[in-house]
Nucleic acid binder design. Structure first.
Length: 326
DNA sequence: TAATACTACCGCCACA
DNA sequence: ATTGTGGCGGTAGTAT
């Protein structure tokens, strides 16, 4: 494994990209590690916008995927979004790479990118635990494995969350170059020692909750699918069969935010997807994303993203393969 | 923009 | 003894 191709796409998580860059993008030959070429491949875009206001410069187009020894797909805030035009070329490139026998690994929500390419069809796979329900709904033929940090099937790897993505990358290094190489990188990353994929998530994964989905996770998954309805924290607590107080506490422990903040974030994200992927009016997007009115949407949008819905749409509803503005 | 009425959050505490 | 629960009330935040 010497040439690694990372797939860049709009909305990708910069954290995941950083992990990949940390593992394969740094020359560590002086510590006895093999040298890697890290190709940053995107669908015709020279520069791709990640989350947190970042831009990553591509080094290759999708042709860079061919001939790689490994392809890695980071997760992304909008990995779960409805198909974008640029996707089809990405899907095609990924499946021909797979046909050519190149292993492909997806971190967290990157699994959705693979699923859209048809690569998870009837295969064992996993994804971020919060998105498992959605993956199952959208791609019922995927054979979900809720218990593993990461899963491999026919050369396709998927991982269960942010931390699990790191484990997956290290595992791939370990497979190709041995435990010592993986340990060296892990040490340099100040990461935890290697965790095997088959481990149940709740044994030692710090963030995610029980893999079999407690009532809290069910409530969260339910909320994600009913964002268009008026939701209250109290209502969600009832759904989780807990008192308000306990629900709020567990929620913070599990997600790192409070229920309302999380809810608003989910709604903003949904509105973003709809603005980018559809031509619905702002008013109806507001309703579908659970902001009762366009003005409420605008207010939240402004506060969360510093723009208006219409501006956002103009900036991001990009045509296939066009460079991003600025 | 202001007033209001409502909701969420969180520390505290008693209890299991 | 430690850990989780859930009720209460003040304050901060949200909705219209």
């Amino acid at each position: 494994m010497k040439t690694i191709a990372v797939v860049l796409y709009h909305g990708m998580r910069i954290f995941d990209y950083s992990v990949i860059a940390e593992v394969w993008g740094i020359d560590r030959t002086e510590t006895g590690l093999p040298s890697f070429e890290l190709r940053r491949c995107s669908a015709g875009l020279r520069t791709v916008a990640g989350d947190a206001d970042t831009l990553i410069r591509a080094s290759h187009g999708l042709r860079g995927l061919a001939g790689a020894d490994l392809i890695v797909v980071p997760g992304g805030t909008r990995a779960t979004a409805p198909t974008e035009p640029a996707d089809q070329r990405l899907s095609a490139a990924l499946s021909s790479a797979h046909d050519a026998g190149i292993p492909i690994a997806a971190m967290c929500s990157g699994a959705f990118v693979l699923a859209r390419a048809g690569l998870l069809f009837r295969r064992r796979a996993t994804t971020h635990w919060l998105l498992v329900a959605e993956l199952k709904r959208r791609f019922p033929d995927v054979r979900l494995d809720r218990q593993s940090l990461f899963v491999e099937d026919s050369g396709i790897w998927t991982s269960a969350g942010t931390a699990a993505g790191i484990d997956l990358c290290l595992h791939l290094v370990r497979e190709a170059h041995g435990a010592e190489a993986a340990a060296t990188i892990a040490r340099r990353m100040v990461s935890t020692p290697h965790r095997a994929g088959g481990q149940r998530q709740y044994i030692d994964t710090p963030v995610p909750g029980p893999a079999d989905g407690g009532p809290l996770i069910e409530a969260i998954e339910w909320a994600r699918e009913h964002l268009d309805e008026p939701l209250t924290v109290r209502g969600l607590a009832a759904r989780a069969r807990m008192s308000d107080r306990t629900f709020a506490r567990q929620f913070v422990r599990l997600t790192g935010t409070t229920p309302l903040q999380w809810l608003q974030h989910q709604r903003i994200q949904l509105a973003q997807e709809l603005l980018e992927g559809t031509s619905l009016s702002v008013e109806s997007i507001a309703r579908r994303s659970g902001f009762g009115s366009a003005s409420a949407l605008r207010r939240h949008f402004g506060r969360a993203l510093g723009t208006t819905p219409t501006q956002h749409r103009r900036a991001f509803a990009i045509r296939a393969g066009e460079a991003l503005p600025r």
